[in-house]
Amino acid sequence: MPQPLGYQAPLEPGQTPGQTPFAPDWHDARHLWLKAGLLALWALVSFVASYFARALQFGVDGWSFSYWLTSQGAVLIFIAIVWVYCWAMNHFERQDAQRQVAQAAGDAAQGRHPDA
């Protein structure tokens, strides 16, 4: 059921209004570089390759390569971009989880409380 206009979800314990549920470093440099690179690849395939596709005049199974590139190749590249993004984000999350576990173990070894 859709929520009424102006509805705000209840706050988590310790959360103040206006706080986001994600840590401020959620989009650190590696996430931003990944997004920038994949966006550049998408723009390159979508606009540049399609613009110059007319110059690619050789056949693939009876169809010109320019037709194949613009009708099918761009879609396949987009699917590959989504797959790479999902794989990389899972990899980054595993790295962050391992770093948090190592930091908590280091804090416990030094006698610091994790919530302090």
Rank of each mutant, 00 (worst) to 15 (best):
V84A: 07
M89R: 06
A36E: 09
A9R: 03
D28K: 01
A49S: 09
V48Y: 13
A102H: 06
F47V: 13
D25G: 14
A29Y: 05
A104N: 12
F22T: 05
D28I: 00
A105S: 07
L76I: 08
Q98T: 04
L76R: 07
H113R: 04
V82L: 15
Q15F: 12
V48P: 00
K35N: 15
G14H: 08
R112D: 06
Q100N: 15
V101K: 05
G14Y: 08
G18P: 02
A97E: 13
L69C: 07
Q57T: 11
L69D: 03
E93Q: 13
D61R: 03
G62I: 02
A108R: 03
Y67A: 05
A80E: 08
F58M: 14
T70I: 08
H27Y: 14
Q95E: 15
G111W: 00
P4C: 08
W26V: 10
A104F: 10
Y51V: 05
G18R: 06
A36T: 01
F92H: 02
Q8E: 14
S46A: 07
Q98S: 07
L11F: 09
Q100T: 12
P114I: 02
I81E: 00
V75N: 03
L39V: 06
R112F: 08
A109N: 09
G59N: 09
P17F: 04
E93R: 14
G73H: 03
Q3V: 13
F92S: 01
D25A: 12
V45N: 00
L41Q: 04
L38R: 02
A97H: 10
A104E: 13
A49E: 01
L69K: 01
G18A: 10
F65I: 04
V82F: 15
D25S: 14
A88Y: 00
M89S: 08
W68G: 00
Q8Y: 03
F78M: 04
Q15M: 15
R54G: 10
P2T: 07
L34R: 06
T16K: 15
A97S: 14
W26H: 10
A97D: 14
Q19A: 15
I77N: 01
Q8C: 07
D61H: 07
Q8M: 10
Q57G: 15
M1T: 14
D107N: 14
P10E: 05
R99K: 11
A43M: 08
Q3M: 14
I79V: 11
R94E: 06
A49K: 00
F58T: 11
A40W: 09
F47Y: 09
I81C: 08
A97F: 05
P10Y: 04
